[in-house]
Design a binder for these strands. Structure first.
Lengths: 196, 196
DNA sequence: GCGTCCGGAGCACGATCGTGCTATTCATGT
DNA sequence: ACATGAATAGCACGATCGTGCTCCGGACGC
């Protein structure tokens, strides 16, 4: 990795951090330049447009999310355990850092703004939903979960849980957010398990 | 109502519409001026700062939401019916217009940006949560709902349902969004009712 | 060790941001 | 009908936005 790639990566890391706080749309070339202590033009040369920068940020966050949440879940035993690991990782990763929340805020910022960023977000979300559904499917095949529930419905429900968590946690700073979310998760699990 | 108040209201209506599309932060004086076919300064005179404009937009949206969702629910019979009216109204109001989504997008845009707007959003959310909890409480007192569930948990869960709906509906344009949300709602209701 | 080439700075651009001040036009009460 | 005050336009401001040059210095291959 030559010098250019190194600083490029450092810039992206900083950009992810800022986008986590101010939102992907709130991430501006100027603020990013001063945060990285570079000139605007020097920074801009790495990404040839702001859109490319935003896409790079999204890609980095996605990678982080897969590493920290999806992969650990997939290496856990199928069924209940896998779902629990997924949930737990998702919860802690997003509480501590930026990866999880970033997609949530980006989704609402771009939901009515056509373009490459929006398209990427839509793809990412479908990928995530499919991963969630697959986690359910594999468990249902073993008989651990009810088979009269659409896996996509599980994905939808779990996603809703996390969204509610983010809102309570980030906007309201509600200390009870995690407790509430955990409780809701337990009820969801209870309604899915065949061994009730 | 003199002329000034009339145009001020018209401006706010337009602002709500724009904020529903571009987000509260995306609402800019310039775009609002050209949308209302007024000069920036002429428009700006009504609100003495951008923050005041944003607060006015929020107030208008809140009023609309209370009229279209909360009040109809409160005039329905307590218990299951009231919850159903609330849910139904919430769903249709936000699908058609701007009121519902506006708070969702505003919440994520300002969740890390201190200021009067954020404070107002937090207040609004607590008010909403309290209203939802109260709807549950009144039903539980009649014995329609389980009494071993915290009303605040119900508020949290229902809110999560709506958030998931907005994401699926606005970002993904998922035609199945409403079906999924309705299904999730039915399962929520089933788990609450004592007459199961 | 040197020449090449890339990473980055300096500077500038038009546009748009939020915000003022100063007129001017219009409505409104008497 | 006229005076008065409110409502709106014109114009300007500094700042910052995204985007382009050009040009230099230092890293890297030979």
């Amino acid at each position: 990795m030559s010098k250019g790639d190194a600083t490029r990566q450092a810039v992206i890391d900083q950009a992810v951090e800022i986008a986590g706080r101010l939102g992907v749309a709130g991430l501006t070339i100027g603020t990013l330049a001063s945060a990285t202590e570079m000139s605007k033009s020097g920074l801009y040369a790495h990404f040839r447009s702001k859109e490319a920068l935003q896409l790079a940020v999204l890609a980095s966050a996605r990678e982080h999310f897969v590493d920290q949440v999806i992969r650990p879940a997939l290496s856990a035993p199928r069924g209940e355990q896998r779902v629990r690991v997924l949930f737990e990782r998702w919860l802690t990763t997003s509480s501590s850092g930026a990866a999880g929340c970033l997609f949530v805020s980006a989704a609402t910022e771009f939901d009515d703004q056509p373009g490459a960023v929006r398209d990427q977000l839509v793809r990412d979300h479908w990928d995530l939903a499919e991963s969630l559904a697959q986690v359910y499917r594999s468990g249902a095949k073993d008989g651990a979960f009810r088979d009269d529930l659409a896996p996509e419905q599980f994905a939808h429900d779990l996603h809703g849980l996390m969204l509610a968590h983010f809102h309570a946690y980030r906007l309201l700073r509600d200390p009870a957010a995690e407790t509430r979310t955990r409780y809701a998760f337990e009820r969801l699990m209870q309604s899915l398990l065949t061994t009730a």
